[in-house]
Nucleic acid binder design. Structure first.
Lengths: 394, 394
DNA sequence: CGATATCCTGCATACGTTTTTCCAATCTGT
DNA sequence: ACAGATTGGAAAAACGTATGCAGGATATCG
């Protein structure tokens, strides 16, 4: 109701001011003369321009532009008047026009391999939330099915004027994409870990997965397991921080490292690895590259009569929402990708000349969440029970 | 090879033509005179404009525009020459400029409550894939935390010139957002089901969940269950197609309907519902509003000594990727949200005046995927076993 | 009180594209 | 061969915003 009334007033105000200065309208709307009924045509979806605001406030539209862009050379009185007019008219700047005129950063495009994998989806959610706070638009482009040779082209396509880039470089495709970004494009990235030796770019963010994997592996070792096996997530440089952390813990404990299986992102990979591992009775503990893998592996273990955690302990990575409802509930390393997304966008903002920033952007810590899938090895208590799984076929 | 040669010729052509006509360049680049070194400044991220293409092809830049927009009044020879120049220079039209000049639809913004819930993530993936095929940009905006009163404002903010809208209206917030979209904005939507009685908008798409829920319920009934209970997903109008289908199957079978629990989207809700249901021995079959709910419910059942499927059968909805790796593997109703996303975008495209379209866009069918969580009730075979779950605490 | 520095504002132009208008060239039919 | 019809291509005006430049107003100082 209130807003309804407000809008009516706006209309009145506007028509009252505009009517007597028909000439002014024509002059103001486009430098050379123009059919004077221009005002009547303004009923499109984005009807109010800075010119309308300027007219309402009684200044030239350039001054309005200065207010919007927080130019220092505007008197407080003018600024307030313009701001009031902006609020009054519910003006929102036209993104396309700003971009065209070389305005400041006002959008991000996220480049990622997937939207449905948990880590990616959560990161996107965090980024979106952050963009909303500062009025940025968020675009999205997938890297799926892009051949390495075509990556340059794919990245180029994602670049728009007045728009930054956030690359989720958790996987080979993402990392390659990151390398393909021209240096002049404002870019931030979520990476697995900074390259060894090099000082990481300030706009690259990551969670310390090395330490987390090491701690998780140590946790299993401390439980009494002889060694720990690993099913990694995909990588392209021969290792991942998760794998490296696992290896480091094993070395530190002076223990012979377990097997490294073939890795992937999905439960299928975990299932395959589980099938292979289940056949080997000496396998009692597995650190999985992510929770999907862990879930698939657990399934394979059960199918082969290996009880969890009695016969084999499993630890996942990420803490997907359903991990705690798995059966048994999955012990895992929680990673707050949403928070990391926020941080990443904050870094991008710091790159831009715009004085914008968002609140609450601290790099999250990984954290071991102990639930039910990890316990002492059977040898530490009694013989393996190898109880068959609770299936209908039992 | 042929095209290779062609390109070389173009290059020669170009340098020969451009060099001697420095003045022409200046004239061409901006109507009033301009510092003639403008060409030197062109080393930004989007360096090549239609003017560059025109110069390379030997035509005016307006002709290039016509070729791009497939205007009929361009000779084949001219078109080919321009197209060659475009390929040569790797020209890509500037989205902002096209939008500003009132060009055709070239972007979509997806409005949805969540990115991480499976159905949403999959739909987004489908939409993204489809947008890529026709060179559209894809934006994304979340509805999370938007109060109903603020919805209009939130939707308005998501509207950009030359950009359509896709609303994922599976939930109350999405449905409200859909209502808030001004009629002049090209919009398509994914909905739960068309409103009863009304002819659905041609740009609204949905999967026949009613039939699927009915079939799933019937499947349980045919297995010998006395009745089926239901844990719904959230809704605002008192029902959902899934719930209605469930009820219809029960009515058709002349069976007293089971309980309708309080619903939500996540496993937590299913867990709570499961806790309540597990206490009632007469509960032998539950249709869940989605797979997360089913997983949470299964967990609650196990914790209370109710074996699945021996004591209670469970059917989920959606077929999330990890459903088949759950333990027992979840019987569920598969829904191809990715395909639905494609279809939705195809509908949006049909709305636009642009003659664009994408391949492979048929509304997907829901499909019951029989796995391990549904079986005949214990009464149909013998007494309930109530075997304790395979936990460490056992 | 006048001069100078400072601050604010308006003017003109640019951004890359679409679109409308218009003219020239080509083709058709007789 | 000529009038008319048709077609191909060019010119110019938008679209909404940003910004360098210059001029005007105001404040400060001598």
């Amino acid at each position: 109701m209130g807003s309804e009334q407000c809008r009516t007033e706006d209309l009145c105000d506007r028509s009252q001011r505009v009517e007597p200065t028909e000439a002014e309208v024509a002059r103001d709307r486009s430098q050379p003369g123009e059919p004077s009924d221009a005002a009547l045509v303004r009923d499109r979806s984005q009807p109010v321009s800075i010119r309308d605001v300027a007219r309402a406030a009684g200044f030239s539209y350039q001054t309005v532009s200065r207010v919007i862009n927080e130019s220092p050379n505007v008197s407080d009185a003018t600024r307030d008047a313009v701001l009031a007019a902006i609020a009054e008219l519910r003006f929102r700047p036209n993104r396309a026009a700003r971009a065209l005129a070389g305005g400041p950063l006002q959008a991000v495009t996220v480049l990622a391999t997937s939207t449905s994998l948990y880590g990616y989806a959560a990161a996107i959610e965090g980024i979106e939330e952050a963009t909303r706070e500062v009025g940025f638009a968020m675009g999205f482009r997938t890297l799926k099915g892009v051949e390495p040779e075509a990556m340059h082209e794919a990245v180029e396509r994602a670049i728009e004027p007045a728009s930054g880039l956030i690359v989720i470089a958790f996987d080979p495709a993402g990392a390659l994409a990151l390398e393909c970004v021209p240096p002049e494009v404002p870019t931030a990235a979520m990476i697995q870990a900074p390259a060894a030796g090099l000082t990481p770019a300030p706009s690259h963010v990551w969670i310390d997965e090395f330490a987390a994997a090491k701690a998780a592996t140590k946790y299993l070792l401390d439980l009494g397991h002889q060694t720990v096996h690993h099913v990694p997530i995909p990588d392209w440089s021969g290792s991942t921080p998760r794998l490296a952390g696992w290896r480091a813990a094993l070395q530190e404990a002076g223990v012979q490292p377990g097997l490294v299986l073939k890795g992937g992102w999905t439960a299928e990979w975990g299932y395959e690895a589980g099938l292979a591992l289940a056949k080997q009775p000496e396998v009692t503990a597995v650190l999985c590259g992510n929770d999907e893998i862990a879930l698939g592996l657990m399934r394979a273990m059960y199918e082969n009569g290996r009880a969890i955690p009695e016969d084999v302990s499993v630890i996942g990575f990420d803490d997907v929402p359903y991990a705690r409802f798995a059966f048994p509930a999955l012990t895992t390393v929680r990673q707050d990708f949403k928070a990391l997304g926020r941080v990443c966008f904050a870094r991008l903002l710091e790159l831009g000349e715009a004085g914008l920033s968002i609140g609450h952007a601290e790099t999250p810590q990984a954290e071991l969440v102990v639930r039910e899938t990890a316990g002492p090895p059977a040898s530490a208590t009694e013989g393996s029970s190898a109880r068959p799984p609770p299936r209908a076929t039992a």
